[in-house]
Design a protein around this nucleic acid. Structure first.
Ligand code: DGT
Ligand code: MG
Ligand code: MG
Ligand code: ZN
Length: 576
DNA sequence: GCCGTTTTCGGCCCGACTGTTTTCAGTCG
């Protein structure tokens, strides 16, 4: 059975191929819109009451196509196109400067079917004879073939570091009046393609010159009077887009450049209903030849009679269709009172229990849980039941010594490849907090892995399942797991699912968090999985991802007082 | 292909940069 994500991927691929074939781009976009609706749907496709056409942007045609996928696993229109189009054509889209129109032309006029043939045609000087092509484009494409577009996006944490460096540097420039990061970075998306910066200045050319002459610049991608893009080497290669505007346009430009694209489109459509036109320069009233500029983004939303929407929600995942009172009061960093997943030198951490407790108290936390690995995770120095007893004594001593922080004795216990748990119930029941998680057998099939996790969820002593999909951003895909069944079981048993705040994980992700809350009413727990005191800083990414998942403080048990937390932990065990 | 408190047909967000062109198309953000 295909899940929503797989169906969405097929529809997106169909859109790409339609465009390559030279079809109406609006038609391709219609499939993209449908693909997004499928991916963002809180309900699985086979459980939509009236079928796929319930989703916005899915009409008769696409609904039929989706039904076909659900029945046969194939998208017929896509299969046909794959048959019809040369298999090397789609990858040409990854050459910078080449789009569907040019590829179509190259294929039709020169018979180019892949990048090798394109290179040959370029070298033979055939390409420059085509309308719209010339010498410069020939050179640019030869260049571009060597340097296909990069696919690995940057971790948010790395993007934020680079952005902060650039922001500080530009802020010192005498002609720079204001500078702010925008784009996916400002929306705190888990990975970013590039760094987008908005600058207010009276002298854009001067600032642009400063940008392109920074020592880290490898290449100037383009440079005009209002925007400049450069490739930087900051330990690794990263693209930076700087948008330069007049001071009074700063807010409109920041809003535009923060996106997302899809949110911008909805925002602009909305403005058209008032007879206005939105661009990065403001909101323009065409009848009265008047352009409004703004002092705050709040005013921009107000102008369109919309509630203010924070950057993290600007993904067109429903935020434009809510009244002010229906938008969530998102969780804030200040709401967070304690971290329930961390490691010490007892396993693979770098600090002692006491050091972790002191660092947590320093952060203003009320409690933490020490959750070292269990015996089967030998590479991480997993603890035996005997170790746990001795560690409990150490934790008791730290609790005795320190005021203002409470340390819970816990474990991060392996869910073994055969689906059993690494400790028997009699060991677990002595612990204040039990986390279960998968660290092996990632390649097993969906049914096997789902059953392993369900075993843990149903165990009467397990409070939390950590990093439920096992993904490592840019490194390892999520293992095959049926999250809907896990969500259902979590709702029934009360077992919590984690949002692991490690910037390499952010697992559960924003979409799944939203679905877990809206379709299953789940609460979650945000934890850093810190292996050192500094790593507790990762909570920032956890809270940001929770906000992107539309979560409020009440949805996250780490906002509870110690008293409330203990009650919840008790409740989970009594309920099972 | 989808959609409709002015529409069941004719739009579908809007602008910058580049390279080609002598007024604009394609790509990208
Ligand atoms: N109105 C409009 N705005 C766009 C469009 N494409 C991009 N933008 C705006 C919104 C984006 O957030 C912003 C920056 O573009 P990027 O390509 O860098 O995308 P973004 O940063 O959102 O994601 P990324 O992680 O870079 O892929 O520019 C578009 O087609 N229309
Ligand atoms: Mg970006
Ligand atoms: Mg960008
Ligand atoms: Zn851990």
């Amino acid at each position: 059975m295909m899940n929503n994500k797989q169906v969405s991927a097929l529809l997106n691929q169909l859109a790409d191929l339609l465009e390559l074939k030279g079809e109406n781009p609006f038609k391709a976009n219609a499939y993209r819109r449908a693909a997004r609706a499928v991916e963002n749907s809180r309900v699985a496709l086979d459980e939509l009451e009236k079928g796929p056409e319930e989703l916005p942007g899915v009409g008769k045609g696409t609904a039929a196509a989706i039904r076909g996928i659900m029945e046969t696993g194939r998208l017929e229109a896509l299969d046909q196109l794959l048959e019809e189009l040369p298999s090397g054509l789609p990858e040409l889209m990854n050459i910078p400067g080449l789009g569907p129109k040019s590829i179509h032309l190259l294929n039709r006029e020169l018979g180019v079917e892949n990048k090798e043939q394109l290179e040959e045609a370029l070298k033979q000087g055939k390409v420059r004879t085509l309308p719209g092509f010339g010498e410069k484009k020939e050179k640019k494409l030869l260049d571009g073939i060597q340097r296909m577009k990069r696919f690995t996006r940057h971790l948010l944490i790395h993007g934020l570091t680079v952005a902060e460096t650039l922001r500080e540097r530009l802020a010192e420039h005498p002609e720079v009046l204001q500078v702010e990061p925008a784009g996916s970075l400002r929306r705190m998306k888990e990975t970013v393609k590039d760094i987008d910066l908005v600058v207010a200045t009276k002298h854009p050319e001067t600032v642009a010159e400063t940008v392109v002459s920074m020592p880290e610049v490898i290449r100037v991608i383009n440079q005009g009077s209002t925007k400049v893009s450069v490739l930087l080497r900051m330990g690794w290669e990263i693209q930076v887009d700087v948008r330069l505007v007049e001071p009074d346009q700063f807010i409109s430009a920041l809003h535009h450049f923060t996106g997302s694209k899809e949110h911008n489109v909805r925002f602009r459509q909305r403005a058209k209903e008032f007879g206005w036109k939105v661009s990065e320069y403001g909101i323009h009233d065409e009848d009265h030849e008047e352009t409004f500029t703004f002092a705050t983004e709040e005013e921009m939303y107000q102008k369109l009679q919309l509630p203010y929407i924070v950057p993290e929600l600007r993904e067109d995942r429903g935020e434009m269709d809510h009244q002010a009172e229906d938008l969530p009061q998102l969780i804030r960093a200040e709401d967070y009172r304690g971290d329930l997943h961390m490691h010490t030198r007892w396993s693979d951490g770098s600090a002692s229990v006491r050091e972790m407790a002191l660092a947590a108290r320093e952060r203003g936390y009320e409690y933490i849980a020490i959750t070292d690995h269990s015996r089967s995770l030998k590479v991480a120095g997993g603890l035996t039941p005997d170790d746990l007893k001795r560690q409990r004594e150490e934790i008791d001593a730290v609790n005795e010594e320190l005021d203002g922080i409470t340390v819970l004795a816990g474990t991060e216990m392996d869910i073994l490849p055969d689906g059993t748990l690494d400790f028997p119930d009699r060991v677990l029941k002595e612990l204040d907090l039990v986390i279960a998680s998968i660290h092996s057998g990632f390649k097993q099939d969906e049914e096997t892995i789902t059953q392993r996790v369900l075993n843990a969820v149903k165990n009467p002593y397990v409070h939390i399942v950590a990093h439920p999909t096992g993904r490592l951003l840019n490194r390892r895909d999520p293992y095959a797991i049926d999250l809907d069944r896990v969500f259902e079981a979590a709702a029934k048993t009360g077992t919590m699912l984690e949002l692991n705040a490690n910037p390499n994980r952010l697992d559960l992700n924003d979409r799944d968090l939203k679905r877990a809350k809206e379709a299953y009413g789940l609460n979650v727990t945000i934890n850093t999985d810190a292996h050192s005191p500094e790593m507790m800083d990762f909570v920032r990414f956890g809270v940001a991802t929770a906000r992107r998942g539309w979560l409020e403080a009440g949805d996250v048990i780490n906002t509870y007082s110690l008293e409330q937390l203990r009650q919840r932990l008790d409740y989970i065990r009594r309920n099972k």
